[in-house]
Design a protein around this nucleic acid. Structure first.
Lengths: 210, 210
DNA sequence: AGATTAATTGACCGACAGGTTAGGCATCCC
DNA sequence: GGGATGCCTAACCTGTCGGTCAATTAATCT
């Protein structure tokens, strides 16, 4: 890569970073290209050299924000039992949203707004969402077969409920000021709800997972 | 009221109605005063006669939208026991958000913005929110004293968890297409989680509340 | 070195935003 | 009836928006 190209790449990155920040906290229509230019310490015209229109810039931001969302948790921790894997999955979700709070916030705001842009987005988000839930369903199903989990509910219902509870934690975190999420209490809650017997015997649910 | 005054009231209402519709579907910054004027079939200047600024119009819309939110569930169903009251409270929440989906959506979108506008709003919403939770805390506390509820958690923790779960249901409802909320399953879930013993003895949790 | 091409800019444009002004009709009060 | 007041509008003002353009700088190619 020539020095010229890398220089262009740098300015492109600066622009994307600035736009990301502004779009996330102020929204699409409330953010002007001049603001982006100022925050990126670049001329407005340069933005239009990198990105044809404001929408194109927005979509570029969207894609960049989505990158960290594609992770496979399947590989990790094969040797743990179903209960521990389930709890780890719960922890993963909460840590992820508290690490990526600003982009989660951003996506939520988009999803709540016009369907125009969010249609393309919501499809991707939904895919992540349902694959996450599918993993939970499978884990809970296996746990039940092994007798680890004594809930009377079907794995699907239980997983839906857990996901709902996690989403609830998410919006509590986003809206109700409060500091960072504390996954431990949520994990314990799920542990008690799903694996009550085992939990009483071995209550170190939170730590066993860290 | 003179015919003149009622005429003014009518036009004011028309403006509020139009603004409500546009703000809700397009957001604050994406809606222009000219659009509001067109939809309300009045001149733009008239809007500025009724409301000093765009923000003032917005706040008026906000307050009108908030009206149905002020309801006291304290009066209803005094004769029910704590378990039934708790479940009824859960049902109330879910029915409310599914009835007022569009304005809930609207408020959520506003809360996500870091604007001055939402500060006045978020205070009110937060007040509703915490008073709702306080009711849950108190009910669960009383239920525990009476031995109806055997969870090891403190009433505060349990209430927080329930509220989170409800919020999770809310966002599931708002985002994941699915039809109307079915409160029954959520109620049963809470019932089983909080009043497990009682629930097994008298599983008609959902129906007893309707 | 000179010509080409990529990266970057300040100045500029029409469109439209929120908001104002001057005035036209009613209606009300005396 | 006649001025004051309330309701309403067309036309206007000013600033900012997304976007363009001609020109400038700096690296690359031959």
């Amino acid at each position: 890569m020539s020095s010229q190209e890398s220089q262009a790449q740098d300015s492109r990155d600066e622009i994307l970073k600035a736009a990301m920040h502004l779009f996330a906290n102020r929204g699409f229509h409330e953010t002007s290209m001049s603001e982006v230019a100022r925050e990126a310490r670049v001329s407005k015209a340069l933005i239009f050299w990198h990105f044809k229109t404001k929408e194109e810039l927005f979509l570029a931001v969207l894609n960049r924000l989505l990158e960290p969302y594609f992770i496979d948790f399947a590989e990790e921790s094969q040797q743990l039992d179903e209960r521990q894997q389930t709890l780890k999955l719960v922890e993963f979700y909460l840590l992820f949203v508290s690490d990526n709070a600003s982009s989660v916030r951003f996506f939520l705001a988009q999803l709540l707004r016009e369907q125009k842009i969010s249609d393309a987005l919501s499809e991707q988000v939904m895919k992540l969402y349902s694959s996450y839930r599918a993993m939970l369903v499978e884990l809970i199903g296996r746990a039940r077969e092994k007798g680890l989990c004594e809930t009377g509910l079907s794995p699907e219902t239980a997983a839906s409920f857990i996901v709902s509870a996690l989403n609830g934690q998410l919006i509590e975190f986003l809206f109700m000021g409060g500091g960072a999420i504390n996954p431990q209490s949520a994990i314990e809650m799920v542990d008690e709800w799903l694996f009550r017997e085992t939990h009483k015997r071995n209550p170190a649910g939170g730590k066993a997972v860290a």
